[in-house]
């Protein structure tokens, strides 16, 4: 959901530092002068990054964000400029070598991050919003509405993600925009499922019923009462999903269904490298990029889940407010 993004930049170098001292003991400490509302959004996310893996993930992601933002300044060469030093191995003038057309691999990698990262985050936000809105409607209203939405979701679930994405992308034609649409169409159902079950539980809880007795309409009930209790798991899911969105996108461009050459893209670079077995670096470094960034998102997502999961919710409830 949209609040996922403002919370994401962990570039804030020491995220948890000022947050932690206020946390322990707060349950029995109602007179705590720190406004709990402010703490809720500024502290919960960094706190969850204080697990070792979460911290590693945050650091990796921070490095990638910096590389992507300052790519034009950092990139030593024009990523599209071809040169005569084809297939130059790493270590020379081109630190990560050059590809078959003599383009600098390092420059292509970091410039590629500029499209891949925002696109992945964008597609995840869109599918999280679409999926959870549909899921919330299904869960709240039930009956026929539920049946229709969830059967469509089941239909999508019935296909392997990458294959369905390929079919859609192939039908729409190659290009970043179509790849995004394809990923969006295949990834919303998981949000719908999660949100649906959460909403179904919440709608029968007494605080929602109390709201209904106060005359809340369905929309108000959903947005005011239920949404705040449903958002965290969806945020966790979305964070974990950024990694798989990047993978799917790379997969599509590997199959020439994503970003159109010559625009640099990790998947396309790997695809090119596969045919150049001797020049291992062409495929290796983009692969490494995908690996690290997917790992980073998974680490962050995992540690987020550990702190926000229903199983540990009690502990979180006590420590975060």
């Amino acid at each position: 959901m949209s609040i996922g993004t403002p919370k994401q930049p962990p570039t804030n170098t020491n995220p948890g530092a000022e947050a932690v001292p206020g946390n322990p003991g707060s349950p029995g400490n109602p007179g705590n002068p720190v406004d709990p509302g402010v703490r809720r959004w500024t502290i919960r996310f960094p706190k969850s990054l204080r697990t070792p893996l979460g911290f590693v993930g945050a650091v990796i992601l921070a490095v990638w964000l910096l590389l992507a933002i300052f790519a034009p300044l950092i990139a030593p060469f024009d990523p599209l400029a071809q040169s005569f030093s084809r297939l130059a191995p790493p270590g020379g003038e081109n630190i990560l070598g050059t590809d078959t057309l003599g383009r600098d691999v390092f420059s292509r990698i970091i410039v590629s991050a500029r499209t891949t990262l925002p696109a992945a985050v964008f597609v995840v936000i869109c599918s999280a919003v679409l999926g959870s809105v549909l899921g919330a409607i299904a869960g709240y209203f039930g009956k026929a509405v539920d049946e229709i939405i969830m059967r469509i979701a089941d239909l999508v679930f019935a296909f392997p993600t990458i294959i369905l994405a390929m079919v859609i992308a192939a039908a729409l034609g190659p290009g970043l925009k179509n790849a995004i649409i394809a990923i969006l169409l295949v990834s919303w159902p998981s949000y719908a499922r999660v949100t649906r079950s959460l909403v179904m539980t919440a709608r029968n809880s007494e605080y929602v019923i109390a709201g209904r007795l106060l005359g809340f309409s369905a929309g108000k009930s959903l947005t005011r009462e239920i949404a705040p209790n449903v958002v965290s798991p969806v945020v966790v899911l979305a964070t974990l999903d950024v990694g798989s969105a990047i993978l799917t996108m790379a997969g599509l461009s590997f199959l020439s269904l994503g970003v159109v050459p010559p625009t640099p893209d990790w998947g396309a670079m790997i695809s090119e490298g596969v045919s150049q077995f001797a020049a291992w670096w062409i495929a290796f470094f983009p692969g490494l990029c995908i690996l690290t960034i997917v790992m980073a998102f998974n680490f962050i997502g995992d540690s987020l889940r550990d702190t926000l999961d229903p199983h540990t919710a009690q502990e979180v409830g006590e420590t975060t407010s």
Partner: peptide, 22 residues
Amino acid sequence: RRPKHLLGIQMVFQNPYASLNP
């Protein structure tokens, strides 16, 4: 939505741990 003329009936539930939005 609950009709306006019925809003005059309000309820206090048994379990105070479930009846407030966390």
